[in-house]
Design a protein around this nucleic acid. Structure first.
Length: 979
RNA sequence: CCGGGCGUGGCGGAACGGCAGACGCUACGGACUUAAAAUCCGUUGAGACAAAAUCUCGUGCGGGUUCGAUUCCCGCCGCCCGGACCA
């Protein structure tokens, strides 16, 4: 019988499902078996179905999972569906079907496609984020965030009740801005916040004020803040979901507008999220992306007083003009700036405020008012996108006012410019044009003074650009001669003593905007009264289920669709304290990231109705040992999940500080290589006639010009099999028959519009899942980006067919396999043991391409044999089974074993068999290979040199030369240096 | 502009201080076959020589370290990914 993947694969997929072959054991059943938690990033089940990128990561983790099972581990390997989210809802709106219906259909399709690949998931643990039994616990976690605060003294989350107790016991006081401080007020605090008498004890606040203070401390809080409102999607978006001023999904323009929104206090965790990156076995590039996103910068805040005399007519004591709304200069607060370079304060020659800065109005002088207003109007009209595109060309306007540089009491002009962002730091900067590129450009354009205050350690400051490196302070009074690092410290000390500034740390990371004006998401477990207070529903009232609605479309206004569910809105409180109030449900829903923030915990205990996860099971399985997924989640999912995990860790619901110990990004699979023809290199496209003639030539040579999907005025594409028509000339390609036609060979991302998407179903039905899996793993390193090439798959299919023929025979090819008892011949045995070692190590380090190459070699070694020793055959089937599990099961059975091969133990290699008694030693003369000697592995150096010098091939290269040096690297090679 | 990664045959890639091109694809030749497919065997970086033996060149470009560099270091060029007025 020849190898027939279709029937074999169907048979074993059915067997695995029915027998629950891949069931993960709960800790009690597992005994002392070591655990491995191998996790895939669960997919968003889109309508388009699986693409070839999904199986890449899934196959990798599947190989690892199967390998560890063969090694006797208890493996948790699972699949689920991240099924809330915008695309399902948009599709639902478009087709007027309920998102639940499309989601369910998509999930079923995804499950079918995934099962067709023979992935070894424990299907009893399948989860779906849209299942009320699942999102009940998403809501529960939200309640934990809501009912917790971040204690800055311990740097961890604690229940809000703990805060109340501390306040009631007078261990803490409240500052005017609502911040909480240790009581008594610590030294230095006074200096920062001014009047210490304004700190108050908890008991002196009325209940409404107390409530406001507590709400201001919660990890989940509401805020009326400028948010990213996307009219096109009818929802607000998080910073992470906005790219270049457009929505990540759909590419609609996004505008800033103030709205009441739920926020999660991720900024409280900025330092821990940053520090703990160092404990993780993640790709360095990904850690760097998270570091950049958190964007911690250390520096100082500096207060600049506004020069009273510069704000005309509004000096202290002058009778106020009723029609002038500006405060008197007495009331003008200082302008606070953030800088990472306090050492350059003496070089600050002007200041700049963001156009949105609150002081802009009050400091602008009457003469400058028209110019300032015109500028504000112009910059308001610019979208975020425009502002970024104009980044190089600086614009700005003078306010007419001056500030006092606290370092030297110098009067410096205050400008307004949109290169200063309200969202970062304080929305105001001190400008040091000599040592900042942007300030330099601005000063050049508006002819403002430039003063050098840092001297490079070597060489001179170039006169045509800013010197932004560290060096030695000059022109800086008491800082002169100090290095940049020393000068920073000295200046901060000065600022703190003078009470005009202090050390400060700034983050790019903003709090996480957590509410969406959508239907298809988790409802908040929150109710509101008619004066805007919010209350948590009881944990025993979860889940708060989504109401069935015929009309779930966005309202087109910031009012969420759930506001249309009139009956659902009414909340009947069980809590007697709330029962008297008129309460209605929160109508916002949670963003898509909510469900994916903790799904890895639910896999551990998916059916638990009493807890998110059983603590015993949690501490057994966590942390995740290997997490594989795409790099697109570097700063969204992976940062959010870490944040939630840390909160749950602080509250003692999970046992590890980090969820994902080891993380690997699989590389993107690009579309098949395309060939574009040009008349000249870099020139215009060839004509349609010419293209037709090339096509004809290909046909003449028996080649297919398949996949011509676009004939635009610009380019002609041809894929895939025209390599034979093309040759390389220098560093570019030309058409072999007509070298005047240049050919550009490139691969592009798979996309519907380009028409180069490969559907896994087609590949599986033609070659089988085993060949498909092996092809994807053989393409190259897992992390590398690599182009798809359908032509290459046949190689893997041939391998599996050949293994089949060699072990069980194939009557169609007159191949009778002959499995014999008895020992494995020495040479083959050594080969087998090398393969066992290599394949095992390669799986552990995720180098599947070289592992498969090793399987090829082993199979090549037995291909010519008339008899295959049973021990060799069986070992080989086990080695193959993680990669091609279906055929391995079938061969295992045909070799006389009861199912399943999953219980077979991974073969062990014998180190003694890896050592060769005879080795082939390359001999070089002056680094060039001249001979190869076969010597005993334990031959000593002198013996080897004698052999070398006796070699007929080496002799001519030594004749008449002096031997300067003889190098023998034991068991590796010999090199003679002569001249 | 900044940060990270990568440049090796006709293609995917291997080796990552020690025999460059493992393994696969393609192509070519041979065996089997009436024939084809399938299968099996062989050749396949470039050049010199009629051919073999053999020699020369060759891992984007230029330099350095080393007995020895695809591998480590410095400087360019090109491609890919990410960030981008973050003070």
């Amino acid at each position: 019988m020849p190898y027939n993947p279709t029937s074999v694969e169907k048979k074993w997929q059915k067997y695995w499902l029915e027998n629950k072959t891949f069931r993960a054991l709960d800790p009690k059943e597992a005994g002392d078996r070591p655990k491995k938690y191998i996790l895939d990033m669960f997919p968003y089940p889109s309508g388009a179905g699986l693409h070839v990128g999904h199986p890449e990561g899934y196959t990798a983790t599947d190989i690892v999972s199967r390998y560890y099972r063969h090694q006797g581990h208890n493996v948790l390997h699972t699949m689920g569906w991240d099924a809330f989210g915008l695309p399902a809802e948009q599709y639902a709106v478009k087709t007027n079907t309920h998102p639940r219906v499309t989601t369910e259909a998509n999930v079923n399709n995804f499950r079918k496609q995934i099962q067709m690949l023979g992935l070894s998931y424990d299907w009893d643990r399948e989860i779906n984020t849209t299942d009320p039994k699942y999102y009940r616990w998403t809501q529960w976690i939200f309640l934990q965030l809501y009912n917790s605060y971040f204690d800055p003294f311990d740097s961890k989350a604690k229940p809000i009740g703990h805060l109340v107790a501390e306040l009631e016991n007078d261990n803490l006081v409240v500052a005017p801005d609502g911040s909480i401080h240790i009581s008594p007020v610590p030294e230095g605090m006074e200096a920062i916040s001014g009047d210490v008498n304004t700190y108050r004890k908890w008991s002196s606040f009325d209940p409404a004020e107390q409530r406001g203070i507590l709400d201001g401390q919660r990890l989940a809080y509401t805020d009326e803040a400028p948010v990213n409102w996307c009219p096109g999607l009818g929802t607000v978006l998080s910073n992470e979901e906005v790219i270049d001023g457009q929505s990540e999904v759909g590419g609609y323009p996004v505008e800033r507008r103030p709205m009441r929104q739920w926020m999660l206090r991720i900024t409280a965790y900025a330092d821990r999220l940053l520090a703990d990156l160092n404990t993780l076995d993640w790709p360095e590039s990904l850690k760097e992306m998270q570091r950049n996103w958190i964007g911690r910068s250390v520096g100082a805040e500096v207060d600049f007083d506004i020069d009273a005399s510069s704000v005309a007519g509004r000096e202290s004591g002058v009778t106020a003009d009723e029609s002038d709304p500006r405060p008197t200069t007495d009331d003008l607060p200082a302008i606070t700036v953030f800088t990472t370079r306090p050492d350059t304060l003496f070089g600050a020659t002007y200041m700049v405020l963001a156009p949105e800065h609150e002081l802009v109005d009050s400091i602008t002088t009457p003469e400058q008012k028209p110019a300032v207003e015109a500028y504000l109007a112009a910059s308001k009209g610019k979208s975020e996108r425009d502002r970024m595109q104009d980044a190089k060309d600086k614009t700005g306007v003078f306010t007419g006012a001056y500030a006092i540089n606290p370092a030297n009491d110098e009067k410096i002009p205050i400008w307004i410019a949109d290169y200063v962002l309200m969202g970062y730091g304080t929305g105001a900067i001190m400008s040091v044009p000599a040592h900042d590129d942007r300030d330099w450009a601005f000063a050049q354009k508006f002819v403002l003074p430039i003063r050098q205050v840092v001297q490079p350690l070597t060489g001179m400051t170039p006169g045509d650009k800013a010197f932004t490196d560290t060096g030695v302070a000059v022109n800086s009074d008491f800082l002169d001669g100090l290095t940049t690092v020393e000068a920073k410290e000295r200046m901060i000390e000065f600022l703190e003593i003078q009470n005009v500034g202090h050390r400060s740390i700034n983050y790019k990371l903003r709090d996480w905007l957590f509410s969406r004006q959508r239907y298809w998401g988790e409802p908040f477990p929150i109710v509101l009264d008619n004066i805007g207070n919010h209350y948590a529903v009881g944990e025993d009232e979860l889940p708060v289920t989504l109401p069935e609605m015929a009309d779930f479309k966005p309202t087109g206004t910031p009012e969420p669709p759930l506001s249309k569910a009139k009956d659902w809105l009414k909340y009947h409180a069980r809590n007697p304290q709330l029962a008297t109030r008129n309460l209605s449900r929160e109508t916002n829903t949670m963003p898509q990231w909510a469900g994916s923030c903790w799904y890895y915990l639910r896999y551990i205990d998916p059916d638990n109705a009493d807890a998110m996860v059983d603590p015993g099971k949690e501490s057994y399985w966590m942390p995740v040992d290997l997490y594989v997924g795409g790099v697109e989640h570097a700063v969204l999912h992976l940062l959010y999940a870490r944040f939630w995990h840390k909160v749950l860790f602080d509250l003692r619901f999970v046992s590890t500080a980090e969820p994902f110990q080891r993380l690997v990004n699989q590389g993107l699979i690009l579309g098949e290589t395309e060939y574009h023809f040009f008349e000249t290199p870099g020139g215009g496209a060839i004509s349609a006639t010419e293209f037709a003639s090339i096509s004809e030539e290909a046909t003449d040579q028996g080649l297919k010009m398949a996949g011509i999907h676009k004939t635009t005025g610009q380019k002609h594409y041809a894929t895939p099999v025209i390599e034979q028509l093309v040759e390389k000339k220098g560093d570019r390609y030309v058409l072999r028959s007509r070298p005047e036609i240049a050919v550009d060979a490139r691969s592009f991302k798979m996309s519907k519009s380009r028409g180069n998407v490969v559907n896994p179903d087609d590949i599986v039905s033609e070659y089988g899942a085993d060949s498909f899996r092996m092809y994807e793993m053989y393409m190259g390193p897992l992390e590398a980006q690599k182009p798809w090439n359908t032509r290459d798959i046949v190689g893997l299919y041939r391998l599996l067919s050949s293994v089949w023929r060699n072990l069980v025979g194939d009557d169609e090819n007159n191949k009778v396999a002959s499995i014999v008892a008895g020992p494995i011949p020495d040479e083959l045995d050594r080969h087998l043991h090398r393969a066992i070692k290599k394949i095992g190590e390669d799986i552990e380090t995720l180098r599947f391409n070289t592992a498969i190459a090793e399987i090829f070699k082993l199979n090549n070694a037995i291909t010519g044999l008339t008899e295959v020793p049973r021990a060799l055959a069986e070992a080989m089937v086990i080695l193959l089974s993680p990669f091609a599990p279906h055929i391995a099961e079938e061969l295992w059975e045909k070799l006389g074993h009861a199912p399943s091969i999953q219980t077979a133990h991974w073969p062990k290699y014998d180190p003694a068999k890896l050592i060769d008694t005879q080795i082939e030693l390359p001999v070089q003369v002056n680094g060039k290979l001249r001979d190869k000697l076969v010597v005993a592995a334990d031959a000593d150096e002198e013996m080897i040199f004698q052999l070398v010098e006796g070699s007929e091939k080496v002799k001519p290269w030594l004749e008449g030369k002096t031997i300067r040096k003889r190098v023998y690297v034991p068991k590796k090679m010999v090199n003679y240096v002569v001249n």
